[in-house]
Design a binder for these strands. Structure first.
Lengths: 201, 201, 201, 201
DNA sequence: CGGTAAACGAGACGGTACGTCGTGTCTTTGA
DNA sequence: TCAAAGACACGACGTACCGTCTCGTTTACCG
C-alpha cells in the first residue's frame, strides 16, 4: 500500500489517519453492525492508536456517524423539472431504500444512542434528516404555489406525517419498506381520511 | 404439547425472585435510564444471584422489557362513549405522554437493541405497540361506520401516518411531544393536504 | 455407639447411589485430575442428585478420597517369609508405583486440600499412609530382632526418612519414581553417610 | 535473543502496580491462606484492574508464588565457618520453621496446583527448593572433603533423605516441625540404621 | 397391609470468583 | 510536537460451581 517511499510511522499522518479510521469504521459497520464498531477494532484495523481517534471524536457512535456522513452522497440531486409531489415521492423512495439496507438499523441506533447535542450528531441529523426535510418543505411550498395542493395545513406537521411512517417501520419492522410504500404515504396524506366536520375537537 | 398436566421436575422457580428482579429493573430504569440497567446492579438490588436472572432472560434488554411489560397497564381503557376520533386523540395523547417521559428513550432503545425475534421482544411490541395500533384500527373502522370519516384509504397506511410521527419525534427530538401535537396529527391527516388531481403519479 | 438395635426410620440410603457416585468420582479423577471432580459432574455422571452426595460427604475432596479408599487394595499383602528389609523394599516399590500413576498427584492434592480432621481424611491417611507406615515399623522391628539392623535409631525418624523421599519427589517432580529409587533409599539409609564423630552437635 | 537493545513499544508496565499486586497477594496469603488469594481481592486491595494482573500472571497461583518469591530472602546466608554438618542442621531448622508457619501449607499447595512448567513455578522451585538443595549438596561435599563423612553414597539420594521428611510431615502433619526434628534427621541419616550385610538384595 | 418418614432425582436458589472485553485516560518512544 | 503503541483503572459481561433449598416420587419399615 504505502510501499515505495516507505514513509515511516511518525507525525505527519493526520489526514491519512482520519481516512483510515473512517474507512475502518465503515467496514466494521457493514460487516457486524454497530456493535462491531468498537474503538479497539477501529484502532487495530486502521493501524492507529486509540488516542488518535479520541482526539477527534468523543465516542464510538460519533465515529460511526462520521463514517456514514462521510460516505453518504451530499445531496439527493432530485430530478429537476418533475412535479413537486412526484419529486417528494422520489425522495421518499430513496429514504426507504436506505432504511431497507443493512445500514438502516445502524442509523436508527445512532440516533438514539449518541449524545443528541454533540457536534457530529447534529451534522448527522443535518445531513441525513434535516436536509431531506428541508427539501420536502420546499416541495410542499412549491406544490402549494403551483396549485397541486390546496389544503390548509401546518407544513411542519405535514412533514412529520410524511417522514414519520418510515421511522416507525424502521423501528417496528411491522411492514415492508418498498417503493410502493413511499407512494402510499403521499397518496394517503394528500387525500386525507375525509373529514366530515362531525368529529372535530 | 403436554403442557397442562405435566410439571417440570426439580425445584420450581421462585416467584419472589422474579418479582424482585423486575422491580429492581424498573427502579434502575427510572433512575438512570437503560444504561443503568446492568445485570450486576439488578442482581445486587434484588438480592439475587446473576445466574438466577440469566436462567429466565437472555440479556439486560430482555429484563428491562419484561419489567416494562410487567408494569404497564394491560389496556388503555379508553373513555367509552366518546366519538371515535376523540378517542383516537385521547390515545395519541397518552402515547405522547409516555414518549415524553424518561422511559421514552429507553423504550426506543430496547426496540432497536433487543433481539427482534425473542419472546419478550414480541410481548413488548404486542403490549406497547400492536395493542394500541389495534385499538386505533377499531376506532378508524368505527369512525367510518358512524360517518365521521368518509375517505377511501388503506387503514394500515393511515395507522402508520397516525403513529409514525410520534416515533419520528421520539428519535429525532426535533419538536415537542405535547398534547396539542397529538391533536394536530389527527387534524392534519383527516383533512389531508388537499389533492388537486394534478400531481398524481 | 447405638448401632445394632436402633434403626433409622424412613427409606434407607441407596447402595446403588453410593456405588455410582464413587465410580463417577473415580472416573473423573482419572480423566481430568482432581479439578475435574466437581459435585455437579459427579451428580450428573452418576445420575444422582447433589443432596444425595452431600448427605454422605461434606465436600468434593471427601468424595474423591472415598473413591480412592474404595478402589485401593485393603492390604499390601506383602510376601511372607521374605527378609524384613526385602519386604520393606517391596513395599516401597509399590508406593512408588502408585505415586507414579496418574492418581499420584491427586493423592497429594487431597492430603493438602482436605480438612485434616475430617472422618474421611483420617480414613484416607489410615488406609494409604499409616497402614503402610505401621507395616514399615513392624519390618524395622523384625529386622532388629533378626540382626539385619544393628544401629541405634529412633524408629519414627527412620520411618520419616524412608517414606519422606517419595513424597518429596511426588511434590517436586525432580526425579524419577522407579523401582531402583525405592531400593536406593533403603540402601542409603541402612548404611548411613558414615559418621566420623567430628561433626556432631 | 534480541533483548538488550530492543525495547517493547507502547507504555511500559507499571512498577508501582506490580509492587502493589505482590504486596496485596502476600497480605492475603498471610491473613487467609491460599484460598483468600483471589484475583478480585488482589485487584481491589492493590487498587488495580484485573486485566493488569492477568497481563503478567496466568492465574492466582502464579501471583501467589511470585509474591512468595518476591518476599523471600534470596539466600539463606548460612553461618560461615561452621562445620558443614552443623550448617546443614542450621539450614534444615530454617526450612522447618518456614513449613511450620502459616505459609507452609500454601507453599505445598502451590507446588501441586500450579502448572509445573510455568515460568513462575520454575522460579519458585528454584528459589525455595533447588537453591537450598544446592546448598545442601555443597555441604555434603565439603563434609566429605573435611572427613566429617566417610561413607560411600549417592549424594542425590542422600539429599532426598535429608529434605524429604520435611515435606512428608508438611503433607501428613503426623509430627512436629521443631528444631530438634531437623537435628534428628541429620543424626539418623549420618549414622545409618546399621547394615549387617545380611539383608541385601 | 396401610402409614409414615426419610431418601431419592431433579433442579432452582443466593453467592463468589472466574477470565474476557471494552471503555476512556495515561505514559513512553520515535519520527 | 504529535502519532503509534499499548499499559492502565474501571467495571460489566456471561459462565462455572459451590452448598442449600424445595419440589414430587419412591421405598422400606413398623404399627
Amino acid at each position: 500500500m504505502d510501499s515505495p517511499p516507505v514513509r515511516a510511522p511518525g507525525r505527519p499522518r493526520s489526514k491519512k489517519a482520519r481516512i483510515a479510521i473512517l474507512k475502518a469504521a465503515r467496514e466494521l459497520l457493514q460487516q457486524g453492525g454497530l456493535p462491531a464498531v468498537t474503538m479497539e477494532a477501529i484502532a487495530q484495523r486502521a493501524g492507529v492508536g486509540k488516542p488518535t481517534i479520541y482526539r477527534t471524536w468523543a465516542n464510538r457512535y460519533e465515529v460511526a456517524m462520521a463514517a456514514l456522513v462521510d460516505a453518504a452522497p451530499e445531496t439527493t440531486a432530485s430530478s429537476r423539472k418533475a412535479a413537486p409531489l412526484d419529486a417528494l415521492r422520489h425522495q421518499l423512495r430513496q429514504i426507504a431504500a436506505l432504511f431497507d439496507s443493512a445500514l438502516g438499523r445502524g442509523v436508527a441506533t445512532m440516533l438514539i444512542a449518541a449524545d443528541a447535542e454533540s457536534e457530529v450528531a447534529r451534522a448527522f441529523r443535518n445531513r441525513f434528516i434535516t436536509a431531506r426535510r428541508d427539501e420536502g418543505r420546499a416541495m410542499l411550498r412549491e406544490a402549494l404555489l403551483m396549485g397541486d395542493l390546496r389544503g390548509k395545513f401546518d407544513p411542519e406537521i405535514a412533514l412529520d406525517l410524511i417522514y414519520g411512517p418510515l421511522f416507525y417501520r424502521l423501528l417496528m419492522g411491522h411492514g415492508g419498506m418498498g417503493q410502493d410504500y413511499a407512494d402510499a404515504i403521499v397518496d394517503c396524506l394528500v387525500h386525507g381520511l375525509g373529514a366530515s366536520g362531525k368529529g372535530a375537537a
